[in-house]
Design a binder for these strands. Structure first.
Ligand SMILES: [Mn+2]
Ligand SMILES: [Mn+2]
Ligand SMILES: [Mn+2]
Ligand SMILES: [Mn+2]
Lengths: 220, 220
DNA sequence: CAATTTTGTTAGATTAATCTAACTTTATAC
DNA sequence: GTATAAAGTTAGATTAATCTAACAAAATTG
């Protein structure tokens, strides 16, 4: 059974993997906030446990078992976030740090019960997909708001970044998942957009914000 | 901040303390399922952190800070058990192992929210008192069923042992907290009792069972 | 393509939590 | 009250997870 530390490395590998499934030692060290030698020794441990493939000086790759283990921890993280928001009244900006701890609890029934009580959700409070019990993730096909055009109507569906600061910014602008947004114009100089939604008329969103919003296009 | 391991030692010390607040090294080793040298080195660590008083060859004692830290972990354990039973539909025999892990989560808001949603309970699903936010425990004065007399009517209030096996035994006999029990007789030979409650008429409870049941006397 | 920079590895140390073996102190029992 | 037993300590080793310093390989770049 994976230790908490190992589970955190597996999650990081899962999230950092490029299309070929590869992750560099330096990226992983950076993500985990540890030194490269620490990562070097940890990937050897992960390999011994059958979770990664690794050769000196080559990028690391999760094995199928590694992928599944990682996906199940991510499942527990996202179910926890959903439970905290929908059943315990937390805000979407408060739940990540708690879920980061709860995800490591070894008690399948605990998470199955959450899943049931939540009605088997497929996305978490930030719009990220919740892997199923087999570790499979349903692919979503959202587009980034910054690639949208003036005149389009879209619905906010997910975020590419869920930091507390960004979520608090979205709260301050009254933006939440499911909000329907009309794009009035896009400034070619700085890629900012003027949009309207709910009571917010002609709100300007900077490129920095737009590039973190994933939407479904529903009109024009 | 206490590590998970340290928190578990503090809980054990809290629970093992005799009226003078003392715990022997061997008792603690036995409770924690580790060797005496392990305990010896751990109590030195706990002392360095200000949680215990300790002198070579003397029993260990929690300091007031140690007591408070222990009580707050116990609070989190018992709130979790209550939440699992009352809000998530678990049976009282299923929750201890999960709570043993959840109790170590560092997120005061998480447990405050549980407390609120539960309506600020003062006892857990096994009748044990839940310490308040200051670590204070409200004293209860129950009597052990095996000290009761024929003819008395009592209400099951708490247990001195909450092992899964014992809880499953109680489930099989339809016994739960709050059940009103009438004592018909007490066998002087083996201390067993013949009792009635709910639909269960003239049920025999062995000494081994009676000594684990704490009751409030309500009649005769 | 050689020089330099970046990335990755090895070696060796540290800290927490554990163990066994050997020894010492305290308690118990004739 | 000495002998034995029980309880407790010390010493030294182990494993997981981390670090820094030194070195090596790979990538970049003029
Ligand atoms: Mn999260
Ligand atoms: Mn985590
Ligand atoms: Mn318990
Ligand atoms: Mn515990």
């Amino acid at each position: 059974m994976a230790s908490q530390t190992e589970e955190n490395y597996l999650k990081a590998l899962f999230n950092l993997a490029n299309p070929a499934g590869e992750v560099n030692i330096s990226e992983l060290a950076n993500q985990m906030n540890v030194s490269m030698p620490t990562v070097n020794s940890m990937v050897k441990t992960l390999q011994k446990n059958g979770w990664v493939i690794y050769q000196k000086y080559k990028p690391v790759q999760l094995t199928p078992e590694g992928q599944k283990t990682a996906a199940l921890v991510i499942r527990q993280h996202r179910l926890t976030e959903m439970f905290l928001v929908n059943k315990m009244g937390f805000g979407w900006e408060e739940v990540h740090a708690i879920a980061e701890q709860v995800e490591h609890i070894h008690a399948p029934k605990f998470f199955e019960r959450m899943d049931e009580l939540l009605g088997f959700p497929t996305i978490d409070p930030h719009g990220s997909p919740i892997p199923d019990k087999m570790g499979r993730i349903k692919e979503t096909h959202y587009v980034c708001l910054d690639t949208c055009e003036a005149g389009q109507t879209v619905v906010l569906a997910a975020l590419t970044n869920s930091s507390t600061e960004f979520l608090e910014f979205l709260n301050s602008r009254n933006l939440s998942l499911g909000t329907q947004i009309t794009i009035h114009s896009k400034e070619t100089y700085d890629q900012s957009m003027v949009v309207s939604y709910l009571q917010n008329e002609r709100e300007t969103l900077s490129e920095k914000v737009c590039e973190k919003l994933l939407v479904r296009i529903i009109g024009e």
